[in-house]
Design a protein around this nucleic acid. Structure first.
Lengths: 266, 266
DNA sequence: AAGATGAACTTGTATAGACAAGCATACATG
DNA sequence: CATGTATGCTTGTCTATACAAGTTCATCTT
């Protein structure tokens, strides 16, 4: 039974990758690690060359579906449900998952030309009009986070007509049809500023978790630029990550000039 | 001028990838997009086949160093394209990607019974024997991070025989055959402790990014429990998150996997 | 029983060749 | 002048082959 359609415009290696993904998902309910057929077996089964099989396995390996061991074979690992890579969640959903109460107070909403670093992040023209929304998130009756959100006015006109103490994600999605898809974050520990300390009602010496985030729509368009701080003594962030082989291939430079011993540490 | 050493045990494609990474980093200060030589040119220049060149370019593409356009060429963007979703990387790999130098000093290595929170994290018996490894990571000639790693002795016997100033990930993978697969992290901002401040040579008032991490093997076994602090004024963490952890290669909705509609607010 | 050997597997690396398809440019044709 | 075409570039896909190197297991030797 050959399942690869040689008349299809879809490349063989993609067809095979699709087949194997399906196969793996079937075996994921069983205990133990599923071992894939060997490369030669797959090549013979589907009437394609081993190089093409390897191309398909490369794709699966990059996406974390399989790992390979020299001399042994290719395997689909056990997936714990909880160990799926962390998904993008909003503050609202985050608090819900933790079972914490959330109240939001809008501090300010302004229309202004984008500051340069905001324009850069949102990939819009310098000084293009944006909204600047500043909100205080009060969790379990304690101010926990100060969040400044920048949104291009072009993407969400008449933002001030809405109740901004509710979920911004939901608003963007339902009213403006923006499907939020990915987000890039930078996390840093720093001291609270005077303004933040005033809003959070804490002394000016406490450390906070500073988060910068650019959120992208499914189209790739940057939708939101967020600068947030969280009380370090009340909030921690949880992240689940997966290891893929591509990062492991980074070898130290072998050029004589730059033999700077950077093959170090764990 | 051929820079690929055909006598080296390092594969050609990795040598070429290293060379090109170096080349790209040189061009990243210039304005505009750097266009790489064509695959045929690279093959001829280095006396290797086009397939091997493509292998090297595949690695660079998956690491976000280059993108390729059919009919046009391969390009290194001005701003490095970040990976689709953040991957679990070791400190070594992290520093390599940032182009920073790394030196590691081993502070201590002890055998001891697992403290309860460590035993819980590693899913081993209370007081089961573990290694406690404390290391100082010195980046660009500045102490940047203090890291305490707990490893079950059962998983990595005779750990003290190894050079622990090198990559722990690599050691676990190569010597002990532990294939690291996923990790769960908790991030928090807090003040540095006296002991940490002494090691990092900083005043006791600075904030640090505190990271707890449990690293799992492909089999689901917890391998490593890490407690680390990073100087807040020198280090930031980057995380990219997605709504759907699945694939970029358009893959048909044949999988019986449903999307949870968890769309909630900002 | 213990250890060495070898055969038969596995994945990893590399070559040479071929054709397809997207892109840019020069050129000929209307 | 506008436009279609030919050509030569680029990357994308695929085949067939070869050898290297790691694993497993049966078998032979001691």
């Amino acid at each position: 039974m050959r399942l690869i359609d040689k008349a299809s415009p879809i490349p063989y290696y993609q067809q095979l990758a699709d087949l194997l993904r399906h196969e793996i998902s079937l075996h994921q309910h069983e205990p133990g690690i599923y071992r894939l057929p060997s490369e030669n077996e797959l090549a013979e089964q589907h009437g394609i060359s081993r190089a093409t099989v390897r191309h398909a396995l490369d794709v699966l390996e990059r996406d974390g579906w399989i790992y390979r061991e020299k001399g042994k074979g290719s395997f689909a690992p056990v997936r714990r449900v909880e160990q799926e890579a962390t998904q993008l969640v909003s503050t609202t959903e985050d608090m819900q998952q933790r079972g914490w109460s959330l109240v939001t107070r809008v501090i300010s909403l302004k229309r202004l030309p984008a500051p340069s670093h905001v324009a850069y992040a949102l990939e819009i023209d310098h000084s293009a009009p944006v909204y600047e929304l500043c909100r205080l998130r009060i969790v379990n009756n304690e101010p926990l986070s100060v969040q400044i959100t920048y949104l291009p006015q072009k993407l969400c006109p008449d933002l001030e007509e809405n109740d901004l103490s509710l979920s911004l994600f939901r608003l963007l999605e339902t009213r403006y049809g923006l499907r939020l898809w990915t987000a890039r974050s930078v996390l840093r520990a720093r001291l609270v500023t005077a303004h933040e300390a005033h809003l959070l009602q804490v002394p000016e010496t406490i450390p906070v978790l500073y988060v910068e985030r650019i959120t992208y729509a499914a189209t790739g368009t940057p939708v939101e630029y967020l600068e947030a701080v969280w009380r370090g003594d009340r909030y921690d962030m949880r992240v689940t990550l997966r290891r893929t082989p591509s990062v492991r291939t980074g070898y130290p430079p072998t050029t004589p000039q730059m033999n700077k011993e950077n093959e170090q540490g764990g």
